[in-house]
Amino acid sequence: MSYKNYPMVSRVVFGRGSFSQLEDILVPKRLSTIAPFIFLVDDVFKKDPDLTSRIPLAYEDKIIYISAEEEPKTSQVDELVEDIILTCKQRPSGIIGIGGGTVLDMAKAVAIMVTNQGEAKDYQGWDLVKNPALYHVGIPTISGTGAEVSRTTVLTGPEKKLGINSDYTPFDQVILDPELTKGVPKDQWFYTGMDCFIHCVESLKGTYLNAFSESYGEKAYELCVELFLDNNLSEEEAQDKLMMASWHGGMSIAYSQVGVAHALSYGLGYLLGTKHGIGNCIVFDHLEEFYPEGVKVFKEMKAKHDIKLPQGICANLSDKEFDIMIDVALSLEPLWENALGKNWKKVMTREKLRDLYSRM
């Protein structure tokens, strides 16, 4: 029996206002005055001097703003890497991602691709990365995706939507400052929070479950229920707890896997560009057959926060388009095996997937 020797984030700071420690953290990591730190920052902060003025730029450091309107693409990673290599006099000292799951995934992917040859699409899959990544730091400004703790960076490539899953992917340093999540719009707060909730349900109900995953998954599940169904939390308490739920939810799938909702959501994301959080919600709403208890609680949360999910997004798709989504979903074999066991192909047929997609 071989056990996963799983890499964790080696350093983490948690606390309100901890973002102000970024400069102290980076100074000893600077390789030289001409080896810059590259800050990838969610472009919603372009007009937010409260955050951008606190980024500790020195020497030739630079900020590159990243739009999170669309899911990250392998081509976008390749363009960024080329830009960094062409404009920096020396290999950068590190990559710092400040934003939600999209920006954190971009930071992880760029840190890998600066030190590995070829294109990002060549590394979509499990354990294909040869060289250690550049030093990279993750600073989430929205909680739920678990991107700050996971060993994957989910990218849409020319042929598939799949992560670069490797031991070199996790951040070297994470700063968890709940204050940074204060301006998140309500719908987005709900969708990314549900990404975390769905991580937990899929991990806890999966065949890969073990005591390691279970301990994190149960804690994250409990925090999500408290957050989304309890009326007595202050805004600050809610921010703190969702940040911890996201961390624990990410850890729960570290040693297990996600399941049906994520597999179907990847299909929607690949074909329709549906954002990951909302895609998970649209799918999960129809999965009573697989996760009866989880879907019941999800519907209660949705009603309590008056969230209206988009309907009929697959209503006018052609057979060819359905086939593309089905192919993407079926390619995620570890997710299906976790959800349905070794004989998952007998349960999850193309017809069954077509039926599920056509309800959305």
Rank of each mutant, 00 (worst) to 15 (best):
F171A: 14
V201R: 01
T141D: 06
E214H: 08
V149I: 15
Y123H: 01
W126C: 08
Y216M: 09
K121G: 07
K121I: 07
V225H: 00
A211Y: 03
L204C: 13
G193I: 11
G157C: 04
M194A: 08
S166K: 07
E148C: 12
R151L: 07
P170C: 12
V184M: 14
A133C: 05
F171Q: 05
V174P: 05
E222F: 01
V225I: 12
L162F: 07
M194L: 05
D187W: 00
E222G: 02
S143F: 11
L204Q: 11
I142L: 12
C200K: 05
Y168P: 02
Q124M: 11
G144A: 09
L134F: 05
V225M: 05
Q188S: 07
F190P: 02
T181K: 03
K219F: 01
E214V: 04
G193N: 12
P140E: 03
T169R: 11
V129G: 10
Q124D: 06
T192P: 03
E222D: 11
D195L: 03
Q173C: 07
P132V: 06
T207Q: 13
N165D: 07
T152H: 04
L209P: 02
S213N: 03
W126K: 07
H136N: 14
A133W: 04
V225T: 12
S203G: 12
E159P: 01
G217N: 11
Q188H: 03
T181I: 14
M194W: 05
G125L: 04
L180V: 06
I164S: 03
L128N: 02
T156N: 04
S203C: 15
Q188F: 05
E226W: 01
I142G: 06
D167T: 10
T207N: 15
K161G: 02
Y135W: 02
D187C: 07
P158Y: 09
A220Q: 06
A147R: 07
T169V: 15
G193S: 13
P140T: 11
F171S: 14
C224N: 11
A147I: 02
Q188M: 10
E159N: 15
D195E: 02
T156R: 15
Y221Q: 12
Y135F: 12
L180F: 00
T169M: 04
L155S: 11
G193V: 06
N131E: 15
K161I: 03
T152M: 05
N210L: 08
L180M: 03
L162M: 15
D195Q: 12
N131G: 05
A147D: 01
S150C: 10
R151A: 14
G206R: 08
V225F: 00
N131T: 14
E119V: 10
S215V: 10
N210M: 04
T145G: 15
I139Y: 06
Y191A: 11
T145V: 06
S150H: 00
D172P: 05
K182C: 10
G157I: 13
K130I: 13
V149R: 10
D122R: 02
F197N: 09
L180C: 09
G163K: 03
V225Y: 00
F212H: 08
L162W: 02
A120S: 12
G183N: 14
G163E: 09
T153P: 04
